[in-house]
Design a protein around this nucleic acid. Structure first.
Lengths: 124, 124
DNA sequence: AAACTAATGCGATATAATTGCATTAATGAC
DNA sequence: GTCATTAATGCAATTATATCGCATTAGTTT
């Protein structure tokens, strides 16, 4: 199925690119200047996740947050990195800190979801 | 505020002790033989978390899971440990694998929520 | 310009979790 | 054992997140 270019897609990507952080559907909708339906935003986000453009994090508030996948050049984030959720500025940033663990081979790890919560360096 | 001993509290603890895993309110309610209201179970779980009896994990399905805090003797789990959510048997277990990371001092980490998802050793 | 169909908007729906309030029952004092 | 205090509970309503069906819109290709 070929993707089409739509203003809504562009708008969502723009917002995510500008903040450089992981954002919820709610936060994205508020930041976008044009009106986009809630369901549409979710569909865009899910599509981008499937296409590898975004990655999804679920924070301990139970909400989904989406962030651009930064490719591996300078300033890159590792494949599985920690996320930091600040309870003051209520943002989630991708930390350039890789998640390392070693568990028995019998476990097949398909996804990694690691979020640290507290006060970020901007707010402390 | 002093806690009172109630059959419901005991029942919830029993179920969690028996499975030894992290369980959702839903799963707990199903396993309990007596009838306990959903809201009551949530209140019990939240109280136990505040009292340090249980710890809470939020998986990438957005649901809360609760597990007994195992004290630091043999077979202990570290303070912040990884959790593994199996998509086949739909359980979450506490892995005896500590979560390690190093981030700048300006970050104040108050909570750690790390969940690996995939197929556990029982189901692979 | 026309056809194809991906993408969208809207409303309804599913699920998780919490809250207000009246009632029940565990605990301590007597 | 009885009574008083109030923690704990049940029930219904509510909040919030996210998804889904379906009719319509609009991007893309010919």
């Amino acid at each position: 199925m070929k993707r089409r270019n739509t203003p809504t897609k562009e708008a969502v990507l723009d917002v995510l690119a500008k903040t450089g952080k992981a954002m919820s559907q709610d936060a994205i909708e508020q930041k976008i200047d044009i009106d986009i339906n809630r369901a549409t935003i979710y569909r865009i986000l899910n599509r981008f996740c499937n296409d590898g453009v975004l990655h999804r994090v679920v924070a301990e508030d139970g909400k989904q947050y989406f962030a651009l996948c930064v490719k591996c050049d300078e300033n890159q984030k590792p494949l599985h990195h920690f996320h930091f959720r600040c309870i003051k500025c209520e943002t989630i940033e991708c930390l350039p800190v890789e998640v390392n663990f070693s568990i028995p081979d019998e476990y097949l790890v398909e996804n990694v979801n690691c979020v640290l919560t507290g006060t970020c360096k901007e707010c402390s």
